[in-house]
Design a protein around this nucleic acid. Structure first.
Length: 575
RNA sequence: GGUGGCGUAGCCAAGUGGUUAGGCAACGGUUUGCAAAACCGUCACACGCGGGUUCGAAUCCCGCCGCCACCUCCA
């Protein structure tokens, strides 16, 4: 198997991935801010990190992946480099008429639902239950305060007269290295407002004081704290934070530094996020972590070897490019803003026009299956901007269905066979196909997650499998190959929800009564009734009454059941 | 204004010096009562424009044009 190479934003080079600890990969991804429903751009970024962790796993690494939930601290009216402005959660709370913690809970729950639907591994299986894998900012105030105290003690931060804490950027000359920004240019841009209390305009808030803010923590009193948090705070910072720091809330960037350290340790292998995170968020994370824990300063761009030889905060920085809709930044006004759930069920989410457009593109009921959205969002390389269109979704649907049909055909060939039924080993042509395409798939993904090339291998395999006459042993190998691809893609529907009806089954079904066809709603379509109508249609066809046969087929199609006649019998499946 | 990036056939999208991906759509054929699926074929001697380097350029260099993002919370 080829070696995994990733593009490190910090060095701007494609580098061989070498973890800090052999066989393990520690990975942190900047997660969602839960003040509204996550949109498809957010999910493209999260899915990029999901594909990366799955590729790491294929390379044999034991992956520990952490993605935070930001439920405090991001502003809406933030033209400033400090934490002026109303908290987004507070704003959502005001609009929804409830308290900000409830709003965060509400949208976090929605996020988890969407994340599961889109098969984010972090939210599937055992990991879903591990809070350390998706830590909440509000539950890590102790870690943040302890870090702020360290920054104060080490001289990287200062306190203003209001009791707020700022990071002093001048103390960290490497600030700007990740994003390629120069502090002088930031000042020249005049978009960083000068605040009297700050020593320099580029200094950023670590702790903010604002009485109007709804989420508050008093660093000097137990009141209002969750008991376990207060206890941990006293353990992490026995003397507490500097007495001049007043009650308030954390700044924008400190949470990720504090939480990645708490759950992954001082040095992590990979830090991912959207390209917009590069500056200032990740730049500030580097500055804070360096200041608080005294890592060796990362080397300059191009000095990859030196950089890796040293102990640092994050060894590889990976950034996903943004998603555009119709070649523009998503815009609610232009109707190009989509949350995941808008696409899953537009009509239910009050977007009848979107439902109609999707229906016209062949989406049954105007609904996009999560697997189709997942495929669409992972189908190009993360280093390229993605231009999302509804047409792209339609193409993704066709692609997923092509893979799915191949999978179902193989499964039919294998049938309920046990090992004893399978004769001999698969043929050489099959074995070399499996070997070559699995390798091509891995090579492409190991080449900085080149998904288009990986998908080329998938479709090459699908074409060949479709054109081969397969015995059970071959089909088993083919299934294994598709399931191997699906460890990364995760778009196959493996449920038994359709199948081939044999002549005997159809005849047997004809003997039993059927519900009234015209009155049967789509939702009532189950395997039994479908089998019944298939039987009716077959009887009509046998009698050469093709008009009636086609009418039944059309009626079933209108209810989301597709009929296919094959040489072995009649196949049906849900659309 | 500063920084980074993009422009490849009807659409999406790999490919960074020489046999050239893959998917979708459309069309033709095989198959089918008709479809669907599948297979075969066509569209495809494609690479924003103009110069240059080279035996050879989508790929390297120079100059344009168009588009996007970031520089401010944002995936």
């Amino acid at each position: 198997m080829s070696v995994l190479k990733l593009k490190n934003s910090y060095t701007r080079q494609i580098e061989v991935f070498e973890p800090l600890f052999p066989g393990r990969a520690l990975m942190y991804s900047c997660g969602p801010t839960v003040y509204s429903f996550a949109h498809i751009g957010n999910f493209r970024s999260f899915l990029f990190s999901d594909v990366l962790r799955r590729v790491l796993e294929r390379n044999g690494y034991e992956v520990r992946h952490v993605m935070n939930i930001t439920d405090v601290g991001h502003m809406t009216e933030d033209h400033l480099a400090d934490a002026q402005g109303e908290d987004k959660l507070a704003k959502a709370a005001r609009e929804l008429g409830s308290d900000p913690f409830k709003v965060a809970q509400h949208f976090e729950k929605a996020f988890v639902e969407d994340a599961r639907a889109l098969r984010l591994k972090l939210y599937l299986g055992g990991e879903a239950a591990e809070p350390g894998q998706h830590p909440r900012a509000t539950e890590h105030i102790p870690e943040m305060l302890a870090m702020i105290q360290k920054l104060l003690e080490r001289g990287y931060a200062y306190i203003d007269s209001a009791g707020q804490v700022y990071f002093e950027v001048a103390k960290f000359p490497e600030y700007g290295q990740l994003s390629g920004k120069k502090v002088e240019e930031l000042e020249a841009g005049a978009r960083v407002e000068v605040r009297e209390e700050k020593k320099a305009p580029e200094d950023f808030a670590l702790w903010k004081v604002d009485a109007k803010h709804l989420m508050q923590w008093d660093p000097h009193s137990e009141k209002g704290w969750r008991p376990e948090d207060w206890k941990r705070y006293r353990e992490l910072a026995p003397g507490g934070v500097d007495a001049r720091v007043r009650p308030g809330f954390p700044g924008w960037h400190i949470e990720c530094s504090a939480m990645s350290r708490a759950h992954l340790g001082a040095t992590i292998d990979i830090h991912t996020g959207g390209e917009d995170n590069m500056f200032p968020h990740h730049e500030c994370e580097i500055a804070q972590s360096y200041g608080a824990y005294g890592f060796t300063v990362p080397g300059p761009h191009g000095a990859a070897d030196e950089h890796h030889a040293r102990k640092t905060f994050a060894r590889y920085w990976l950034h996903g490019r943004h998603l555009l809709v119709d070649n523009r930044k998503m815009s609610k006004r232009d109707g190009t803003f989509f949350t995941a759930r808008d696409l899953f069920n537009p009509a239910f989410n009050g977007r009848a026009d979107l439902a109609a457009r999707l229906e016209a593109l062949g989406f049954k009921g105007g609904r996009v299956l999560p697997a189709v959205l997942r495929y669409a969002l992972i189908s190009n390389q993360y280093t390229q901007p993605m231009n999302f269109t509804l047409d792209l979704l339609a193409q993704a649907k066709a692609s997923v269905e092509r893979i799915q049909r191949c999978f179902e055909r193989l499964r039919e060939i294998v049938g309920p066979a046990t090992d004893a039924d399978i004769e001999g080993p698969a043929g050489d042509r099959m074995l070399s196909l499996v070997d070559a395409q699995e390798r091509a798939f891995d090579d492409a993904l190991n080449d900085n997650l080149n998904m288009p090339n990986a998908l080329a291998a998938v479709f090459k395999a699908v074409s060949e499998l479709n054109s081969m006459e397969l015995g059970k042993a071959e089909a088993v190998e083919g299934l294994r190959l598709l399931e191997s691809f699906d460890e990364v893609l995760d778009v196959l529907d493996r449920r038994e929800r359709s199948g081939l009806l044999t002549r005997q089954e159809i005849d047997a079904r004809l003997e039993r009564p059927l519900p009234e066809f015209e009155s049967l709603a789509a939702a009532e379509m189950d395997a039994l009734s479908v089998a019944g109508f298939v039987a009716l249609r077959q009887a009509a066809r046998k009698a050469k009454d093709f008009k009636r046969g086609d009418a039944i087929r059309d009626g079933l199609k209108a209810r989301g059941v597709l009929i296919e006649d094959t040489s072995q019998g009649v196949r049906w499946k849900l659309e």
